[in-house]
Amino acid sequence: MSAIASADPAAQETFLREERKRYFTFMNLAFLMTALTGIELVLIYLPFPSQTIIYFTLIFLSLIKFVGVIFWFMHLLWDKAFLTIVFLFGMVIASGTIAALLLLFSEGYVDPAMGIYEAD
C-alpha cells in the first residue's frame, strides 16, 4: 500500500510520522531477535535436566522470530488482512504436510538389509 500516492498532504504527513515511528519498532525488533538468537545458542549448551523443555523453548523462540519478521518487517500488521490469510494458508498446508509426513515415516519400516550408508 503505497501511501505516498496519496495527494492529500495531511495523509502524507500522517504516513511519514508512522514511518518514523516504525524506524524505532524495527530497531527494537532487531535487537530482540538478536538477543533471542543468542539465547538459543546458550540454551543448547546448558546442561539443563529436561531436554524436552529446551526442545519446545527453541521452537517457541523461532516462532517469535518468525512472527516478528512477517508481521513487522513484512508489514503484515499494517497491511490488508487478506495477505496474512493467503500466507498463513500456505503455512498451514505446508506445516500440516510436514507433520503428516513425519508421522507416516517411522524407523520401524526401514529394511536394514538394504545398503544403508555407513559412516566412515
Binding site: V86, F87, F89, G90, M91, I93, A94, S95, T97, I98, L101, L102, F105, S106, E107, Y109, V110, I116, Y117, E118, A119
Partner: peptide, 27 residues
C-alpha cells in the same frame, strides 16, 4: 511466498524425515 512455503516445506520435510528414520546414519 505462500507457494514457496510448500516448496521449502517439502525440502525441510525430506531432511527431517531422513533424520528421523536414520538418526545414526552419516556423521
Amino acid at each position: 511466498l505462500a507457494s514457496d512455503c510448500m516448496f521449502f516445506g517439502t525440502l525441510i520435510s525430506t531432511h527431517l524425515i531422513y533424520r528421523k528414520i536414520y538418526p545414526d546414519v552419516g556423521p
